[in-house]
Simulated assay, not measured.
Amino acid sequence: MGVMTEKASPQLITTEFDRWWNSSGIWVEPANKRRGGESGVQLLQQRDLMRPPLYCKRQIGHTYRTFLHPFGRPTILRELQAYRAFARLGIKTPNVVYCTARQKHGAWQALLVTEALQGFVSLEQWYAVENSAALTKAALIQLATTLARLHLAGWQHGCCYPKHIFVKSQVNEGGTVTVEIALLDLEKSRRRLRIKDAARRDLGQLGRHRGNMPETDLLFLHQAYQQALNNPAGVLQP
């Protein structure tokens, strides 16, 4: 199934939208009221168990306002823009299965359906178990490179908590380590004119909410981030 956009035909949106809107699953983020509306996330199992589970974010009246959208625009549509921008930068994010919004009875309804990341664990989960120092160092270097690439391109994550950063690691034959970083929950992602503003926001959030991450690891992450910024040509290559 392809990615839907806000320019899709009304008839297709109605048919497809209602099917996703009425799907049932396990609430992993129960609907809560914020931004003057409601937002929640359900975990959906696909009929084909060989395919990854899906996360379905549903929002009602959950909007943001800008000069271009003074009457409000669904935050999910802004999140979709961030997913596409991050993908162009070569930054791993969940695959978007369906995303669109509609107005019904005067209120915005919006959907974002993404595939679960296979083989990844959140940074929060990473630090809940014991990993080798070499593996953790490799993960932090890759995270630093990912954030530097994001910031050099004029973007900030905006909600850079350990639960929104995912790590996939593999020890290959010969002992070499391969690490992949993925970012999700891009609802608050936005453009930034200055790298230092994006860094202050994202690295500051991660530091304040680092949980079980030792301070020494946080300092190492900052050092690796600065080294990545000093090599922009290498960082901007996906």
Rank of each mutant, 00 (worst) to 15 (best):
65 R>T: 12
53 P>C: 04
134 A>G: 04
88 R>P: 15
25 G>K: 07
23 S>Y: 00
21 W>I: 15
52 P>Y: 08
78 R>P: 04
210 R>D: 12
219 L>Q: 13
175 G>Q: 05
127 Y>K: 09
27 W>D: 05
184 L>P: 14
136 T>Y: 02
73 R>P: 00
95 N>W: 09
220 F>A: 15
230 N>Y: 05
15 T>I: 12
212 N>F: 07
106 G>T: 08
51 R>W: 01
138 A>V: 05
38 E>N: 09
235 V>Q: 07
40 G>L: 01
47 R>M: 14
45 Q>R: 09
156 Q>E: 05
13 I>P: 03
201 R>E: 07
145 T>H: 13
82 A>R: 13
82 A>S: 08
188 K>M: 02
72 G>Q: 03
216 T>F: 04
78 R>N: 11
221 L>R: 07
146 T>K: 11
101 A>I: 01
15 T>N: 03
87 A>F: 00
112 L>T: 10
149 R>H: 07
69 H>E: 15
214 P>F: 06
94 P>S: 08
141 I>F: 08
70 P>D: 10
7 K>L: 05
97 V>T: 07
229 L>Y: 03
24 S>L: 01
48 D>Y: 01
121 V>M: 10
163 K>I: 05
30 P>I: 14
180 E>P: 03
22 N>H: 14
26 I>W: 03
208 R>L: 08
65 R>E: 14
2 G>I: 13
174 G>M: 10
64 Y>N: 11
108 W>G: 06
196 K>I: 11
195 I>V: 14
167 V>E: 00
208 R>N: 13
174 G>R: 01
